[in-house]
Nucleic acid binder design. Structure first.
Lengths: 222, 222
DNA sequence: TGTACATCAGTGAACGCGCGTTCACTGATGTAC
DNA sequence: TGTACATCAGTGAACGCGCGTTCACTGATGTAC
């Protein structure tokens, strides 16, 4: 009830210090960070409104438009940061294994795990309807292709190592993506469904995706 | 330009005849039909507003509330009708084949096809965040379980026929669902991606899902 | 067979909310002279 | 070393839109007497 006599208004959030001339770009970073934090913490894209971001940063909504053309640009930029992180995590996981097949499996495990850890991002990036507007210049799409290309190369290495029969790495990479994406997105959308225990489910999917080709080899078909 | 002098207002859509006493339930059906049509034709859930539905039916928005408690109930009911149709299509497809394994594959093909034919419904039913509100009494969930149970029984028949090794039909059914869902939802969300040709993609996924167990059998493992 | 009345099936207008966004303005900071 | 001025980094208030929903009212239809 008693209003704080200092510079702050009654809201608990302290208003941030105004940036010095030349340091305006700092707010830009803080806005991106706040949007990122809101997205992760609330787990709801709807909670990440311009007002909410401004509130979290400690500035007013119009200040955001000094640094971003519109909300979509802002969200897109946040997603791009996330996506780069996603690709790195997958590559790191893959790098742990020496065997190309095990490496590919590690990618799959990391994919599901990362998706489940950041469901709201996963929704935005992989489960939303495509933006009509940003068809060509969509950086997220370029990055998605980059991450997919990593996957495709991983498949190719399995083919080269003789784990997979020769064939189109592209199609196999698509199928594996569909498998991991199917798991991840269903677990996100239907959390109440009686799924198998996570680890078991992941390994079953990997067995389905990778296993039949292995079986083909293991049993020495002729 | 010239206003029609008859009973209609200037809008092209004729206003519907008022139902006679006792026939009020007719509007209810027309509302469901209109919402269904809008959902299929526009391919956008956002386009299916109360105003749009009222416009399509030829009544006023408040009239909708004479028959539905709120918008969510309306949409849910429309989805239930769709879902019943979905389950029927899958069962019909499965019934075409005599071999349990081929029957299961037919389910998978029909699943993807039906999802792609009604992407907006597919989004709502399988790609949306779960309603917090309707956790227990969610009929759509019950129906989803029913459709899944059909799938699980189909898997069990494959096990019984010796196509699959004994094991938990439930887990395999989950994995197959994840496969077909992964394909369907990615094709819906990323239409611009260079996917394999649809048929090829479906068969590859089915081979991944069903094939490795078949391979296990085909090659006569000991 | 006519009439008063209840009810059923709606209408018209508006509310309230949240959202993204814009407009006119401000006030501190740095700089030329 | 002081001062006028430009600029940078914001603020405060409001707009406009679309949406779901509500409220008070209406007018045709059926029915009891």
């Amino acid at each position: 009830m008693q209003a704080d006599a200092t510079s702050q208004p009654t809201t608990g959030k302290p208003r941030r210090r105004r940036a010095r001339a030349g340091e305006g770009a700092r707010l830009r970073q803080e806005i991106l960070d706040a949007a990122d934090r809101l997205l992760r913490e609330t787990g709801s894209e709807a909670a990440v409104s311009i007002d909410a971001i401004a509130g979290a940063v400690g500035c007013t909504p119009p200040a955001i438009y000094l640094h971003f053309a519109d909300k979509r640009s802002l969200i897109r930029e946040v997603c791009e940061r996330y996506f780069a992180q996603f690709a790195d995590v997958l590559n790191d996981a893959a790098a742990q294994a020496t065997d190309p097949l095990e490496s590919l499996a590690a990618r799959g495990r990391a994919y599901v795990q990362f998706g489940l850890e950041h469901p709201e991002y996963y929704r935005i990036l992989f489960m939303h309807r495509p933006d009509e507007g940003a068809s060509q210049h969509d950086l997220a799409r370029v990055r998605a292709n980059a991450a997919f290309d990593d996957q495709e190369r991983a498949v190719q290495r399995c083919i080269d190592a003789g784990h997979f029969p020769p064939g189109t790495a592209h199609n196999i990479a698509c199928a594996l993506w569909a498998s991991t994406h199917g798991m991840t997105s269903l677990l996100i959308s239907k959390p109440g469904f009686p799924w198998p225990p996570l680890n078991e489910f992941v390994e079953l999917m990997l067995a389905h995706g990778l296993g039949f080709i292995i079986a083909d080899r293991t049993h020495g078909a002729g």
